[in-house]
Amino acid sequence: MAHAQGGGYYVPDYSYWPLVASAGLACMGAGGAGYLQGLSWGPYALSIGLAIMVVVFFGWFGSVIREGLSGLYSDQVDVSFRWGMIWFIFSEVMFFGAFFGALFYARMLSVPWLGGADPATSKVLWDSVALNWPTAGPGMTGLEFEPMGAWPLPSINTIILLSSGVTLTIGHHALKAGERGKLILAMWATILLGASFVSLQAFEYFEAWTHMNLQLDTGIYGSTFFMLTGFHGAHVIMGTIMLTVIALRCMRGHFNPDHHFGFEAVAWYWHFVDVVWLGLFVFVYIL
């Protein structure tokens, strides 16, 4: 019973997906908290919440896709979606900003202070401990670990992720030129590159964890290393899933050269993930 408004703006009449999604996040929040506290029902509630969210993703996005295909979205609706995606990505930038801020603070301020640059701090806490980045902190000096260098895996991963940005752009141009075969090939190449990145990153984590004694609790270096690269990796996984959906939609012929915002939104997201990686590569691995 949806109706297009005057001027052609599509306002859906009612939808149960927001309510279901809220119930899903409620289960995930309560279940995740219960799990962390070791409560017996925690894992069940968390799993149910995740299952609900999967259903929501299929259902809600499915209805948006159907509405889009049936031509309910005018150019003005398209612009709303664009603003929505832009500001969502901006919020993600700020989320990563908090963790980059923590990294900069640790490297520029707290580690030097604890290492003697601020006598008032170091005298009271750990006197005469020399600290140099990368460090696990003054209270864990007995801890031996090997920091993660920029070569070889992270550099290879940089090349892989940058190449995936190129293949995706080739796909976009192919879509605009109406070259279907090239588009689909470029999409699957992008997905393959994304999956390779995730696999290599998993291998890097395995190496760090088992052979380099570099773990999440390896002081501030381990904390910032794993939280920054971990959240980035989670975004790459999410982006790869999104690219897969878009690739399948390309194969079904959902997009035409003039109207393909779904494609563009995912492309924006992928480039954002790419840029975050460049920041990580510079500040976590090289410097």
Partner: peptide
Amino acid sequence: PVLAGAITMLLTDQYFGTTFFNAAGGGD
């Protein structure tokens, strides 16, 4: 999102052994 980052660090400090806010681990 910055608040979300801050409280996520609290959560991992509590449950996963990170030391963002623990001077012994080089945090503050």
